[in-house]
Amino acid sequence: MEYLLTTSSLTKQYGKQLAVNHVDMHIKKGDIYGLIGRNGAGKTTILKMISGLAKPTQGSYSFYSDNESLSQCRIGTLIEAPGVYQNFSAKENIKLKCIAAGIKDKNEVNRLIELVGLQNAGSKKVKKFSLVMKQRLGIALALVGNPELMILDEPINGLDPQGIVEIRSIIEKLNKENGITFIISSHILEELSKIATRYGIIEKGTMIKELSVDELSNEGSERIVLMTDNNPKAIEILTQMNISKFKAVDEKEIHIFERFQDTGDITMELALNGVKTIQIYLNNDDLENYYLKLTGGNKNV
């Protein structure tokens, strides 16, 4: 499969501390790739290496299997806080980046200002901006040069709910309308799960799992948990009901991965066949629970 970006055994060591440990990432064109991990897991270090801001101690990364230096200019980055001159206006900051990127189109600054919804604040000094306005400006700066890949490190950190919605809608728009691929790291897994199409889960510098949204679903995040007094008989009945996606977890518990609306029918059918239902409920594990299960951590992601 052709990937837009792949990393191979990407490693970063600071002194004796191994911040990133042989990470292999696979990002397809059009992905919104959610990079998940707790504080200090190595997310920012990975993003900095891919952005060319930090040198890997070991390993490499490549774009379309090309030479990395040829493609580096097609990456837009927003790592940690937006890198902007506080005493300059939004337009001046974008113009600086446009000059550096060799963009001569005089309308480019206004186009980017409008794209991120800063048209009413373009001439205002950045030091007077709110946090969400600065994030918007950071995204506009990352968009200079029409990047194929945007790397956003905690883009919604510290934003109020309205700000989160605004940034999310900008990302969705850029992904759908401009075909830009995103790598986004975030602590706020619920928000990430609303836009991400693939996930990479990092724990202590190691990539422990890469999976798509479909794979996450197939991993059994959503299921009917059924407990009966006679599981072998219950399995026969489920088969008769044309339910095939189920798993007997132990002698008492069966997990069913389809027909989530039919818990009533299942209970009725079991009762009609003399099987007593001890417990039945829909377990709707979200990304957070999956992450916690995988890492064995607590809720403080």
């Binding site: 952005s51 060319g52 801001l53 230096s69 580096q72 200019c73 990456i75 980055t77 790592i79 940690e80 806080a81 937006p82 890198g83 902007v84 001159y85 506080q86 900051n93 600086l96 980046k97 550096a100 990127a101 700066l141 990352a142 200079v144």
Partner: peptide, 17 residues
Amino acid sequence: HAESKNGFIKNIAGQVK
């Protein structure tokens, strides 16, 4: 120092090799 203090260098350093 302004370039690194304000973080603007992050916008360009990756693209200059």
